[in-house]
Design a protein around this nucleic acid. Structure first.
Lengths: 282, 282
DNA sequence: GGGCGGCGATACCTCCCGGGTATCGATCCG
DNA sequence: CGGATCGATACCCGGGAGGTATCGCCGCCC
């Protein structure tokens, strides 16, 4: 199977429309139809059920979509990491660390300082991204190492070390009646129908259904809470950097959040190893 | 980057010889030279240092070799799992479990029985392989789930659950003076210069240097021990199925062996989930 | 219900590129 | 210094990827 075929199939499987997929790929529709047909014939498997009105994935097609994305990420990662290795050989080695914007705001500077103090450390570029994007960046080689937060992020497919575990707090507008309480339960939070939990985009960019406002990033979320439009359950550490117009109350029975440092498996980079060592020693 | 280019590069990088690599790929040497040259030009990276007498990998080339193999495995896995998904939709679903031949001889039947007793379980094909091969089979889709033994096998890049941890014993010919001892230390074992530890093949098929005999599988190892040519440090559980002409003595300070059940990340298979559940409940 | 529009498949052409053979140039060896 | 080895280059050929035109099928709507 060639990556071209995989890219074509993934495009069609995502669009469920040959014309749009072809447009996205920058080719005409007929060669795309033919390519998918050839792929199916070579695999001996029907990947798509097409009527002249709708295209749907078969069971096998769904598997190839998932596995094919992973494979394409791996190929892309190979290419990117090779380029970076060539750069590192001639110029600055550098390291890209990715984390969710707004998370681990206290841990990150400590980690960077500790690592920078080590002998032989290299420059670390910090990449902040939205929730759920980190895994992709680590998988396709755009980042070398990441701070993930279980159970929100999945460590599937990565090597990792646990760094710390913390409880969660609910963040409310300052002055909200509940801010006087010493602690709350999840039931109290879900009962806040006037301050619903926000909805984060899924990996495909769409939003789940629900009452809460749609948010894209951390700053936007805090803004919405300050405006009295939402509330959010966040790790305790976010409390330290809260805006003055917000307040936080511990939620006793919220799931604990574990911060882990994760990197692609088989990473042979000395720099990653050093950063991980610095992190575990914090 | 196309998988064809990757396959070509991996072949050359492994052979370090364009002629032999071309032969292995079933093409002539000139197109191969050209393909590698094009790949280098497109990446803007020198992958191979060639004189007319020798070919060596650059730093970047070594990275692409490692990452490229992983990417090719991922592509192969996508293909294989798609085919299997198509089969599962029409015929028997089936599941392939891979484990090292000779290991977990007591755990495996218990696991298979426990899983078979579950409602909705599917047929499980057991694949026995040499040490170090399991990871490859799991990565390229030939197996769905595997029993690995840390620290010998690496769980890098897989999801896994720990099943049990055990000590190790040294296996000696029956009647050897040390078999009378209640327990030993690693120092006692390494002092056995007349019964050296065997050498296992690396993933590329070559053997490390050392005094011990070269072995390929478990049966061969036991045979060599019985012949008085070697000794081996193995997990305790192997004691239960020892031949009558062999004896085992616990080694107190040998590293503990943890048996884990591992599967490719993002596996959505119900069958794998069921097998893992059965394993953790043992 | 018949014409229309949208969509995937098919037919057919073109041209690029992957693969082959022949040969060159460099380097090591006897 | 001549032969052997090995990668690069030159050149040719054929298959296949991509394009345009068109067909066939099916909802939809006046």
């Amino acid at each position: 199977m060639e990556t071209r075929e995989l890219r074509y199939f993934v495009a069609v499987a995502e669009e469920l429309h040959f014309g749009r997929a072809a447009q996205r790929l920058g080719i005409a529709q007929p060669p795309l139809s033919r390519a998918i047909g050839q792929l199916e014939r070579r695999l001996g498997v029907t990947l798509l059920e097409r009527t002249s009105r709708a295209v749907t994935l078969t069971e096998a097609g769904a598997v190839l979509l998932r596995e094919g994305r992973a494979a394409l990420d791996a190929v892309e990662a190979a290419e990117r990491r090779t380029r970076r290795a060539a750069l590192a050989a001639t110029g600055r080695p550098g390291l890209v660390l990715v984390t969710k914007a707004g998370a681990s705001a206290d841990l990150l500077p400590k980690l960077l300082d500790a690592y920078a103090a080590e002998p032989g450390s290299v420059a670390v570029d910090v990449l902040l991204c939205g929730p759920g994007e980190q895994e992709r960046l680590l998988r396709d080689g755009r980042a070398d190492v990441g701070l993930l937060h279980r159970p929100f992020d999945s460590t599937a497919g990565f090597d990792f070390e646990e760094l710390c575990t913390e409880g969660q707090v609910v963040v409310l507008p300052a002055g909200h009646p509940l801010t006087g309480r010493a602690h709350l339960r999840m039931a109290d939070v879900t009962a806040l129908s006037d301050l619903p939990r926000p909805r984060w985009p899924r990996s495909d960019g769409t939003y789940p259904d629900g009452p809460g406002p749609e948010v894209r990033d951390h700053a936007q979320l805090l803004q919405l809470i300050a405006l009295g439009r939402a509330s959010a359950v966040l790790p305790e550490s976010s409390r330290a950097h809260l805006r003055h117009d917000l307040a936080a109350v511990p939620v006793l029975d919220a799931p604990a959040v574990t911060t882990v440092i994760a990197w692609p498996p088989h990473s042979r980079s000395m720099a990653v190893a050093g950063l991980v060592r610095a992190a575990t020693r914090l």
